[in-house]
């Protein structure tokens, strides 16, 4: 019974991180129909931005985290203005695939800029908390608790923003029916820009959290992004609540498999689950299969 504690701690922590990474990815997919292959790189940039702010410029921790969000949001905005917007204008029919290729190009570029600026060797993220709480045999490091709380707080804030504010309502409306939104005076392009900024900011902070339990490296965001893809697919692309539930559930499964069968079997187990789910439900667990009329 000694594995329950570690599995829970590890599963909940990675689950929170996956959920946060998935939220940004899913938001962009749901609004723009765009799979942002540079999402993982936004995580990386956030991690490095916080590192630079905190340990090289000596800024206080909250400012460093804000810096990470700002860098993520800025790059998100640039991706929209320089890549996604022109691509969607030029050929909307092929956008779904062309944007994946183009954003991968962006990811490759940004990742190499990070490599040039900081070098390939792993760096320690200074924003860490030491110590742990023990409840009997149950040990919960503060760091993990901070990550879980921060991620849940960010998700709650995003949910509130989307549900309660006018800008959030416009984002949801545009995602559901862009033509109708235009007819009501919603500047759809600006809404898309906001979505990419929001997603970039979430990714930036997520990168800080990820790097605080691992290490900073130029490929920091690759693994969370790949997992986030998996979560999105299982939940049904674009479904936000579903994506978050799936993230926690699959992270727990992954942690369990890793404890029982070894670390290398975690990802294959996830893939097996995805394939099984999609064979039964091609639109994902929470998704609806679109009926295409001919």
């Amino acid at each position: 019974m000694d594995i329950i504690g570690p599995v829970l701690v590890s599963g909940m922590t990675t689950g929170a991180l996956y959920a946060l990474a998935t939220l940004g990815l899913s938001l962009v997919w749901g609004s723009l129909g765009m799979l942002n292959m540079a999402h993982g790189t936004l995580l990386t940039l956030g991690g490095y931005a916080a590192f630079t702010a905190a340990s090289q410029l000596g800024w206080p921790v909250p400012v460093a985290v804000l810096a990470a969000a700002a860098v993520g949001g800025l790059i998100g905005a640039l991706i929209f203005m320089l890549v996604a917007y022109p691509l969607s204008r030029r050929n909307p029919e092929t956008f779904e695939t062309t944007i994946m290729i183009a954003t991968f190009g962006v990811a490759l570029t940004l990742e190499n800029i990070v490599l040039r600026l900081y070098g390939g060797q792993p760096l320690g993220q200074p924003l860490t908390v030491g110590g742990s709480i023990s409840l009997g045999r149950f040990v919960l490091p503060w760091q993990n608790l901070v990550i879980i709380i921060a991620a849940i707080a960010l998700m709650a804030a995003t949910a509130l923003f989307l549900a309660r504010t006018k800008a959030g309502r416009a984002i949801r409306a545009t995602a559901q029916n862009p033509d109708a939104a235009k007819l009501l005076g919603v500047p759809v392009a600006r809404v898309y820009l906001q979505v990419l900024i929001l997603s970039g900011m979430l990714a930036g902070v997520c990168g800080v959290l990820v790097s605080s339990i691992t290490q900073l490296s130029p490929s920091l965001g690759a693994d969370p992004m790949l997992k986030a893809f998996i979560m999105c697919v299982v939940a049904g692309l674009g479904n936000l609540p579903g994506a978050i539930i799936t993230s926690f559930a699959l992270a727990l499964v992954e942690a369990l498999v890793q404890f029982l069968a070894g670390a290398r079997w975690g990802f294959p187990a996830l893939l097996a689950i995805v394939i099984l789910v999609l064979i039964r439900r091609p639109g994902g667990l929470f998704g609806r299969v679109e009926m295409r009329r001919l």
């Binding site: 949801r172 559901q176 029916n177």
Partner: peptide
């Protein structure tokens, strides 16, 4: 004001939210 064919409602939103979207500007 354009009331489009086939309604083009925001299917996932409540009636109230749909109406409030009309007052977006």
């Amino acid at each position: 004001i354009h009331v489009p064919q086939g309604d083009l409602l925001f299917a996932g939103m409540s009636v109230l939210e749909n109406l409030l979207m009309g007052a977006y500007l």
